[in-house]
Design a protein around this nucleic acid. Structure first.
Lengths: 347, 347
DNA sequence: TTGTAGGCGTTATCAG
DNA sequence: CTGATAACGCCTACAA
């Protein structure tokens, strides 16, 4: 019976470290390190021997020590607005795919739109020496963010295509996306429409308003938009907005919602009141959530790709795309997905 | 002009550390550490002085060093099946709330139901010295999991109420939840029903099948369930299942789906074929997703609380609930949410 | 090719 | 109450 793993583990109360591996393999600690980090510099025989020992002892190196020694971190920080929203979930997946390929896990924080939590998480991530922080900022110019940057923390802004300062950002052109929705409605003859928007404090809402209202403003004197603002972009708020919506119906023949959840709520509210979509009122959403194509009627919406945003942001953060490193911001294209919820306006 | 932060930062090319703080405050490194970790043991005057310096210099301690010294980790690991699904997103939020209160961030990994990724992430988390791993296992008894436990990694199973071994687990009683759905349908007179289920390899699907079929089996000779199995629990698969569903309609007067996304797809598929819900076919979902109450008809479903699962699991993992530490597994109660998608069976 | 030695930033121990 | 010192596990010069 040779000295097996359990014997080793039992013998020493301490956790397995590279020194123990070295001892078991009859080499020095440095050689173990070389096997792990510079396999080319070690002889095949030694390599095999050390690898065998590591496997049989089930060795897992200690990142804290490695990071400390390296003076840097080996995890990617990520601060999103709401991890329970599939949009951000997809974004996390994208970031994770890229980070995992570089051997880095993703530390996810959900700020819940609280500036206080944002700051708290930011410091927590910094103390963990993350290699970078991808962040959807509650406010784009808080002291917390300034501080982080001053301390040398690498920051990548998400879903925030502002070309404001020297910040690196990856996002979608929401102005354009909303304009595409507007142009689609205009081309179907809808001159008087409603726009159910979230709070203007969210930059995405500002951009979508800019794009949508801009297109209608430029569409002639008879084109008019009634903007209805709700405090949160949820299905419930969408249903509540129907109250206000009915006051301007039937003058408006179509409704554009700042995201699909709002559109879902509006759809539900309207059908409760006996208003048929799209026969009486056309409806357009934003995001192309998973449920959009499966609604009745299937929702015409603007598709954005949070997975891709996450991927690109992580790439920039981890220096995998040098060509993008300088050219900030990275702006992705939205796509109009025409389904069944828009009909030409009845003359 | 006093020695300000920028001067310090500029003067030394190295990152700010506790030694620099000590020097700036005219105390020893150990005192700085005490200010941080044992404030009670340091004199108020010194405390204030050191704190002032730390704030003005914007000091963020290095966790890698702390963790290394402490011989443990200060982050919570979390492996979910699909981070883009709001169910898991909510669960992450719950875990994060608890962990953040203990100053620990959450490292999130999405296994995408791949055993290979699961193992890879598990090792990654272990190398990061996480204090524990909350995991929704792809398979409940893989060698990877055994290995992790052998290495002394603390594991908490999610959404997996098996009382199999000495594993700690936090989950929902899906057998009971599905039984509640069945009893509701039975009480409304639905004796012949269909059950659209996900793959049996997922333990939640097994449990839901057990509960639902069990209730019908015990409900008398005329009660019958047609089970339709689909490969993934998505809206698309739900729509596809309608094909098979129509073959057994109108014999079956109700459909139970293993989750809300499937129900959404079924709803859409049925309405496409001109089958009215709930007038012709009643429908029950599972999960109580955000969109459930906003559908037409509002979906009757079984509510489970992923946020609470995350909270409880993190508590157990971080030793905040000693009373639960021994009593594994923690099983949460599901709730039937009656809305509009079930009507008494027409005689 | 392999071994020796020093230090990354922090905390705990122990002496003053 | 405060300060000097050692150690955590690993990596990287440098020496052999």
């Amino acid at each position: 019976m040779e000295p097996s793993q359990s014997m080793f583990a039992a013998a020493s109360g301490k956790r397995l470290n590279s020194r123990a591996i070295a001892a078991a393999a009859g080499v020095s600690q440095a050689t173990v390190s070389n096997v792990l980090n510079h396999p080319d510099v070690v002889s095949p025989a030694t390599y095999e021997k050390v690898m065998a020992v590591m496997e049989s002892l089930d060795f897992v190196p200690n990142r804290s020590a490695r990071d400390l020694r390296a003076g840097g971190g080996s995890a990617l920080g990520l601060i999103v607005l709401d991890i329970s929203n599939p949009f951000w979930g997809e974004l996390v997946r994208g970031a994770e795919e890229v980070a995992a390929a570089k051997g880095q896990p993703v530390i996810v924080c959900s700020s819940e739109q609280s500036a206080q939590k944002e700051e708290q998480f930011l410091r927590l991530l910094e103390s963990h020496q993350v290699s970078a922080v991808l962040i959807a900022p509650v406010a784009p110019d808080s002291p917390a963010l300034r501080g982080a940057r001053r301390r040398g923390t690498r920051l990548v802004f998400l879903d925030h295509a502002d070309t404001a300062e020297d910040v690196i950002s990856v996002g979608v052109d929401d102005v354009k996306g909303a304009r595409m929705a507007a142009e689609h409605l205009l081309s179907e003859g809808h001159r008087q429409v409603a726009f159910v928007n979230g709070p203007r404090s969210i930059s995405a809402c500002r951009d979508r308003a800019r794009g949508f209202l801009g297109a209608y403003t430029g569409a002639g004197p008879d084109a008019r938009v009634t903007e209805i603002s709700v405090p949160a972009m949820t299905g419930r708020e969408g249903m509540a907005a129907v109250e206000a919506l009915l006051e301007v119906t039937p003058a408006v023949s179509a409704v554009f919602c700042a995201n699909d959840m709002l559109a879902l709520g509006v759809l539900r509210g309207l059908s409760r009141r006996g208003v048929k979509v799209p026969e009486q009122v056309s409806l357009v959403g934003y995001d192309d959530s998973e449920f959009a194509e499966v609604l009745s009627p299937a929702l015409t919406t603007v598709r954005i790709d949070p997975f891709e945003i996450g991927r690109r942001a992580a790439r920039v953060a981890l220096d995998l795309s040098p060509e993008e490193a300088g050219a900030s911001p990275v702006v992705l294209e939205p796509h109009l997905i025409v389904r069944e919820s828009v009909l030409p306006r009845q003359a």
